[in-house]
């Protein structure tokens, strides 16, 4: 699968010191001043991250009514986890918490606030969630004759009670990008599933490996502890 990245924004929570300060990501304070205060008040840090990235890339250029894919491995898990604790304790559930704990909450809020009426998908695909957001975006570019696709990937650190199940570094981060199909002879990326690469493992989330490689336009093998296969990202200059 081949695609061109027109816009790319990578945000990593400032406290994540395991990633060294560098110029390939942003850790500034999340600015959501474009969201009306009455809507902003209900947003968790997960939703704020997602909307921040979506807004950063979609307000560049002259994009109108972008179709989108929002992906996350765990979604707004802190919110879900709190609801589950209430269920266990036989407490009534917060209607707001319940309404915003669904996997497409961030994508829905983005659509409402921006007045965006295009189709949007919400994807969770384990350690490969970001990869499959790219796959979905690519398929829709090819299939629906879309000009551009907005892709937003966001993950929070796991809530404490789930931390024992972590199989990768816990890094709160969000990635926004806009992709389109390449024109003939134009520099582009390709992404392919590969087997038996024999290359070592990584406990860095695949989304961050991939975003860094997209930023650096490098040829990178994206690997994960839990997967038998890898993904080869190649830049064709």
């Amino acid at each position: 699968m081949k695609f061109v990245v027109e816009e790319l924004a990578i945000w990593i929570k400032p406290e994540q010191r395991q990633i060294k300060e560098s110029n390939w990501f942003d850790s500034s304070v999340l600015n959501l001043s474009w969201v009306p205060a009455m809507q902003r008040r209900r947003m968790t840090s997960f939703i704020k991250m997602a909307l921040f990235s979506a807004h950063q890339v979609s307000t560049q250029g002259n994009y109108v009514n972008l179709p989108s894919v929002f992906s996350s491995r765990h979604g707004d898990f802190h919110k879900t986890s709190n609801l589950l604790v209430d269920v266990v304790n036989d407490q009534p559930l917060s209607p707001t918490g319940f309404g915003l704990s669904v996997h497409n909450a961030a994508s829905g809020l983005f659509g409402i606030i921006q007045g965006n009426t295009s189709a949007t998908n919400a994807i969770a695909a384990g350690a490969e969630s970001f990869i499959y957001a790219l796959v979905d975006g690519f398929v829709r570019l090819a299939d629906n004759d879309q000009q551009h696709m907005l892709i937003v990937h966001t993950d929070e650190t796991l809530p404490d009670i789930y931390a024992q199940y972590a199989d990768e570094q816990q890094i709160a981060h969000s990635i926004g990008l806009i992709i389109r199909a390449p024109q003939k002879g134009e520099p582009h990326f390709s992404l392919n599933k590969v087997f038996n690469s024999g290359v070592g493992e990584s406990d860095l989330p695949m989304s961050i490996q991939c975003a860094k490689a997209l930023h650096e336009r490098s040829n990178t093998l994206l690997v994960h502890n839990t997967l038998e296969h890898d993904w080869q990202l190649t830049y064709h200059a």
Partner: peptide, 17 residues
Amino acid sequence: LGLDSIDALELGLAIKK
């Protein structure tokens, strides 16, 4: 105050509690 229907549910729950 500009509250909406979700606020009504949330406030109802809080008052009940």
